[in-house]
Structures are given as structure tokens and as C-alpha cells.
Write a protein that binds this DNA or RNA. Structure first.
Lengths: 333, 333
DNA sequence: ACAGGTATTGTTAGCGCTAACATAATCCCA
DNA sequence: TGGGATTATGTTAGCGCTAACAATACCTGT
């Protein structure tokens, strides 16, 4: 690991001042083509690469954005992260990745450490911070995009992006109605989850629209995995045998639900139609192939960083975006 | 976004020199408990947080490590990333995440940009760089850990961590033999992939050990997904009907293989036993539940950063690690 | 009470770069 | 042909911090 070549080295070698070299590397005008070429050659020859740290210290820009997610292992966030990074790469930004593991303390520490590193902005996914702390944090960063979190009072340097859970669920329920289902059950996830709450509201709204009476016996909450789906559905079937459709919080629960139905002797989708959410890879492999609500998360990630860069660049913007679900109709409904 | 509080601000407020404050925030000796407390109070009161950029410029340490992966969307790398970040967090390091998308140019750019940001080390996963370029890159970073890539000539600041593909496959084949299978087919992945190659070697070695003759008609390569597994297996079954076991490059191919077998009227595992690799979540949900080779990737990620930090801290180390697969015996074999 | 040590605080310089202003070189047209 | 505009280059200062050395203040034992 040899020592870095610095601006000064190049300047000396080219027999010009550091500023002239600086102008060349930053593509600024005010340098003859001849000297520019000369310097460019030297830069290549001496393998000079600017020291971003030094540059940041004076410009107050780091070309770095922080991405805070609960758990990168969750495909939901991995997809978003990929989109975020892709778009960042295109604009020559890099990503500082942080997992909060849904722990408040870790999220606070993360934000502090990002702040210390003087990043240009943050993309904060599914933040669990209490409103007050969150808004305090946001105010100290130059720009932030909030993903998948209920909005606070508007802030000038903040944009929120949310998936439209309500509307998505309504679409699903509507689909059930269109294929003639009337006894539609709702499998909720953990009720600490914002999206589970919103989906529940969507479910109720959609029933009202379809003029179907709400029946609380058709609603169960459980863990958002296959096991939870299985248990919830078994419980449901034992007290209500007239069910002909199930909306599940996510695909894993939907799969659990299918297994429970089949176990109990119901055919899917003939007797009971099932719709999940997320469109995980498994959905198209599992048999029967799962009908599900889908969002292009990678695209959403891209949108998040583009929006962030817009805020950084001081371009006016609306304060919230709503991303719509798409219903992927496959075999299960 | 108000202006940052700086060391100078604190120094002025406390009526001491900047150095004294610096000593306090860096927990260095040479400050009275009294003044220390006084300064600490002011720091809290004025919400001072050191500027990491400025600090890095003088110390030449950034407390940041680069993590380069082909695609964070791939659960394999997401798991590793999670482990890497967890361990980094514990040591107060942060992670710069980069996706190369398996593109050479993007990998080079990534490495350049990390270099410019003066990071303390890199963890490079499944690098596709030609040997020469790779080793040149490695030599300019203070420390690097190579994951899942054949080792080059040893370098003082480099540690390689590889999953022991060969031994893993041997374990799988041995399991087939133990349950009385003799006609063992091999479903390979893309032959550009190092791991596919190594697993193929392991397959041949294991056969030799078990004194089973190698038959090239039992070997097929295809895409590493369910479709590839399905096609490969169909092809296999049409020319060889005596097959009683299949080793698949990964779980997705294994699932495709199962579907192809069942389609062709073979029972799994009674007629044909099947083993995959990766232990993806689906493996334990799919029916029949998949027997598969498993590695604790999160743990591997942790190992990677611990090792990297050891290199940074100049603690002597062996040049390569081998991580062993574990055979998870479920229903499919 | 004082030499010689130790514990505490301060001063100077510089990391590598760029903003802002200052100067030198070149041009163009009346 | 000369002077104001223009273009090319240089100089100075400082971003926020810490390493290294310098200067005090405070001891301790004799």
C-alpha cells in the first residue's frame, strides 16, 4: 500500500499551481486545452485519484447517502436497497447501509453516526422512531426520504413515499367480489405494523363499498409467516365453515392458509380463493400459484434516491408519494 | 438545518483550548476530572458531535468498510451483508454497500470510488475481476477480505474466505450412498461460476471414493433456477431411466428437479432422492421438504468483518478460511 | 525551600482540497 | 495602438480536527 498521489504532486509535476489542477479534475473552465491535456496525461500516468475526504471537508458534500432499513435480509428491503443503490450509482453517489434490527437504540445510533459522517441525505425505511424524535432527526439532515412510514407534519426537506395499502386491499377484495365470493376473511399481521393496520382499514372500506356486512369472526391476526397463516386459518375454519375467500397479510401467510385449507379438505381456489401480498419468488413456484398484490420495489427504491437527490438539489416537490399495488392474478384466486 | 457545533465552539464556551476538548471526546488522559466533566456537560448541552470527515482527514481512518456484492437482492449476499453489518456495528464501523451486478466495469468503478473515499478496508464478494486487476486493486487498500473467490498468490493484507464446495458435495453424495443410491446424477449451474465448477469436482471425487464409475450421461448443466432444474432433469430422465438420486447445484434447481421427476411419474424420495444447496426459506416449506447443504451465511459475514478488522489492526492471520457446509436432512433424501 | 519530576493545558502546523479573490497574459475593436 | 474586456493562472485562507511538541502548574522528598 504505497502513499497516495495528491493534487500537490500533480501540480509540482506539471509545474502549475494546485488550483489549475483542481480546475481540471473538476472540469471547470479557465484552463487552456493544452495545459488541460498535459495535466490529464499526468493524472493518468501518476494514477491520481482525488481524496474525497479532503474534498468533502471543504465542500460540505460527501456524495454519500445513508440507507436505513430494519433488515436487509428481508427481500422487501433488499429489493428497495437494490433500486436505491442502482440510482445512486448512476448519479455517482454511494450508499451507507445500516440495519436497525427494529431496535430503537440502534436506529438512533445509526442516525447519529450518519450525521457525523456528514452525508448528503438519508432514506429511512419503516422507521419506528416516535414522531418527535424522528422529526428532530430529519431536521438536522440536509434531505430525507421516508419510506413506508406514516407522515408527520410536513417539513421542507422531507418527502414521504408510501405504498397504498388501502387501495391495494380494496383491489383484492373487489377481485374476490367479481369472481362471486361473499364470505371474505382477513388474515392480519402483527398489529404493531402500520401496514397491517392500513390493510385492515382497506378491508373494511372495501366490504362497505361492496355492500357486504363486516363480520368480526372473519378476522384473525397472527405472525406474518407460513405458520401464522396456517394457525390463523385453522382457527378461522373451525368457527366459520362458509368462508369462500381469504385475504392474507402477505404471501407467506397465504401459503400457510392454503395448506390449512387443503388440510381441512377445501380446494383452492374452487372452494376458497386466496390472495396474498408481496409477490415473493415462491408465489409463482408454489402450487397453486399465488394471486398476490405486487409492487415494483426496485423501482420504488430508484424513486426514493431520485427524489432525495432532487431535495438535495433544491428542486421543489410534493411532500408525499403513493405507490399503487398491482394485482397479479394467478391460480389461487 | 442549523449549523453544526464544532470543537472550536465547545472550546470557546468552556474557555479551554481545542486540544483539551479533543482529549475529552477521544477519551484520552491528561484532563482533570473536573474540566472533563465540565466539557462533557457542554458537549451534551450544545449537542456537539464530532465531524468524522475532518477527523478522517488527519487520522487517515474512516471507520468505514466497503462491501461489494454482485446483487444484494440475492438472499445469499443479503445474509452475508447482514452479518457483515452487524459485526461492523459492534465495532462502530459503518458499511458502504455496492452492487456490481456482475459487471466488470461497475466493479472497477466501485473499487475506485471506495478508494477515493479512503475506506479502511473492503469485503469483496464473488469478484469477477481477472486475477491481475484484482490483485492490483487489493494492494492499494489497507485491508481486504475476499469471499467466495478462488485465491490468488498470497498478499499480506488479504484473507480469503471460501465455502468448501467440494467437501460439501462429497458429504451429500456420501449421504446418497448411505441410503443405498448408486445412480447419482449431477445438475450443474452456469459453468462460468466457480462454485459450480468446484462442486462438479467434488462430485467426481466423491464418486471415486465410493467406487462408483463416473458416467457423463448423468451430468447436465443449466440455469440455476427452477426452470433450469426442470429442463435439465427432464433431459436426464429421458435418456437415463435408472437414476435414483440427483444432486442439484442449488435449491431452486432441486425444486425444478422434483417437479420434473413427479411429472415423469417418479416418487421423491422413494424412487429418486434429491439434494440441493443453500437452504433457502422455501426449502422447508416446499413439499417434500428439501434435504440441502447449509452454511450459516450471517455468521460468515461476521467472520469476514472480524477478520478484516484484524487485518486493519495488524494482527497476524492465516491467509485463507474454509467454511464447511452442513447437510440438513429433511424429506427429499 | 527548591531541583526534578509528573500531571495538565496550550500552541503550532498540517491533513488534501477548493472558494474567493488577485494577478498576469491575451484579445479585440475603435 | 492602446485600454477595457476577457481568459488563464496563481495566492491566500480555511474547512474541523489531531499529532507532536512546548509550556505551564502542581507535586514530592530532602
Amino acid at each position: 500500500m504505497k502513499k497516495r498521489t495528491t493534487l500537490a504532486d500533480i501540480a509540482k509535476a506539471a509545474n502549475v499551481s494546485m488550483m489549475t489542477v483542481s480546475r481540471v479534475i473538476n472540469n471547470k473552465p479557465g484552463v487552456t486545452n493544452q495545459t488541460r491535456k498535459h495535466i490529464l496525461d499526468l493524472i493518468k500516468e501518476m494514477e491520481y485519484q482525488p481524496n474525497a475526504i479532503a474534498r468533502s471537508l471543504v465542500t460540505n458534500k460527501t456524495k454519500t447517502i445513508g440507507l436505513v432499513v430494519p433488515d436487509i435480509t428481508n427481500p422487501f428491503f433488499a429489493q428497495i436497497a437494490r433500486g436505491v443503490e442502482d440510482a445512486a450509482y448512476e448519479h455517482e453517489y454511494t450508499i451507507l447501509l445500516i440495519n436497525t434490527n427494529e431496535e430503537l437504540e440502534r436506529e438512533m445510533n445509526a442516525l447519529d453516526s450518519l450525521w457525523q459522517k456528514d452525508i448528503d441525505g438519508i432514506i429511512l425505511c419503516s422507521s419506528r422512531l416516535p414522531e418527535l424524535k424522528l422529526s428532530a432527526q430529519i431536521q438536522r439532515f440536509p434531505a430525507t426520504v421516508l419510506l413506508n412510514r406514516e407522515v408527520l407534519e410536513p417539513l421542507p426537506n422531507l418527502v414521504s413515499i408510501n405504498v397504498n395499502d388501502q387501495r391495494g386491499v380494496q383491489r383484492a377484495i373487489q377481485h374476490f367480489v367479481e369472481i362471486g365470493r361473499k364470505n371474505i376473511a382477513f388474515l392480519g399481521g402483527p398489529n404493531t405494523s402500520f401496514s397491517s393496520q392500513r390493510r385492515f382499514v382497506g378491508y373494511q372500506t372495501a366490504l362497505k363499498t361492496a355492500q357486504i356486512a363486516y363480520d368480526e369472526n372473519l378476522v384473525v391476526f397472527n405472525q406474518p409467516n407460513t405458520e401464522g397463516g396456517y394457525k390463523a386459518t385453522s382457527a378461522l375454519l373451525s368457527k366459520k365453515s362458509t368462508i369462500d375467500a381469504i385475504f392474507a397479510f402477505n404471501d407467506l401467510m397465504a401459503i400457510g392458509a392454503i395448506q390449512a385449507c387443503q388440510q381441512a379438505g377445501h380446494r383452492v381456489p374452487e372452494d376458497i380463493a386466496i390472495i396474498g401480498v408481496d409477490d415473493i419468488p415462491l408465489s409463482s413456484i408454489f402450487h397453486p400459484r399465488l394471486t398476490t398484490l405486487h409492487v415494483n420495489l426496485q423501482q420504488t427504491g430508484r424513486l426514493a434516491t431520485r427524489t432525495l437527490l432532487d431535495i438535495i438539489g433544491n428542486e421543489a416537490l410534493p411532500a408525499t408519494y403513493q405507490i399503487e399495488f398491482e394485482l397479479i392474478t394467478r391460480e389461487s384466486a
